[in-house]
Structure formats: structure tokens, C-alpha cells
Amino acid sequence: MGVRLLSILAALVLLTACETTPESAADSSGTGGTDSGAGASRDVTSDLTDTQTGEEAGPVPGSAEDFVLFAGDRVFFDFDSYDITAEGRATLERQAEWLGRYPNVTITMEGHCDERGTREYNLALGERRAQAAKSFLVALGVEENRVTTISYGRERPEVVGSNEEAWAQNRRAVTVIN
């Protein structure tokens, strides 16, 4: 019994580590989300109690990692724009589908900007981006009271570097599972 308990703990620790590894989030988002559906429909909860190593366990359905794998957690914007792009629409549609499957999940929509604007204006622009993404989800049937917004302006870049690629990655709205 002691051994069994330990292995469960090990599995949990590994899963937690996965969730908080920034590279994994960036990788999955970098491809604009994935429809590989890894683990999306598997009953991982029962696997979890049986697994010995944790490596075989996919993301817990309804978890933040599951959300990222299924839908992608972010959409990107053009410079000084808050228009949802075609790629962003596809991501938000998958997000809405996932959120429809887990109606108890609430989310925070973060709006972010690149460093090529002034601080105060970027706070307003980040709020616009978060609201634009939220409105899109609401239009697809996600209840409005499940989505709160917050703007970080240019204060929390995802990618470091004063270059176009970094700026493009930083102009984003990120859906965070609460």
C-alpha cells in the first residue's frame, strides 16, 4: 500500500511539472493548437490511479493542459490591432467547443501587447484584445459570466527579444483556465 501511494504521488508531481513547464505551453501554442486530441477523450482519471510511472498518463480531461492540447490557449494579433485573425477564429472555435464540454470551467482572458507601444496605451489595447477574444467566445455560446478579462499591456512578454518574431508572439490573447 505504501508503494502504491508513492507511485500515485509521483504521477501527480509529473503532471504538475508538465503543466507549469513554459516550453510545453509555448510549443503547443506555437503550432496554433493541435487537433491530435491527445488524451482528449481518454479516461485518464482511472489510468492515473493505476499507472506506475505517470509517463503514460495523458492530460486530465477538463484540465488546463487538456485545454491547451485540444484547442490552443492563445490567439495572435497584428500590430496595433485587435481584430481576430482567421487562424485566431479557428482557435477560439475549438476553445468554445472545449468550454461547452466542461461547463463548470471558468476562464480568464489575458490581453497582451508587444513592446512597440507606450505603456498606458498598451494597457488599453491589451484590454481591447482580451475583450475581442471574449466576445468571440460569447458569440459561440460560452456564457459571459464564465469569462473575466485582464490586460497586461506590454508587461508580460512571452518571448524575449526586440525583433519581429518575438513581437508577433507577444501580441496575444491567452485563455487561462481558472
Binding site: 513592446e115 524575449v160 527579444g161 526586440s162 525583433n163 518575438a166
Partner: peptide, 12 residues
């Protein structure tokens, strides 16, 4: 004044 940031994280 903020200086440009390098990919390595230097600068800035």
C-alpha cells in the same frame, strides 16, 4: 529609455 533586448535575454 529602454534598450533593445537580444534573443538571449541580454540587453533591454
Amino acid at each position: 529609455r529602454q534598450e533593445p533586448t537580444e534573443r538571449s535575454g541580454g540587453g533591454g
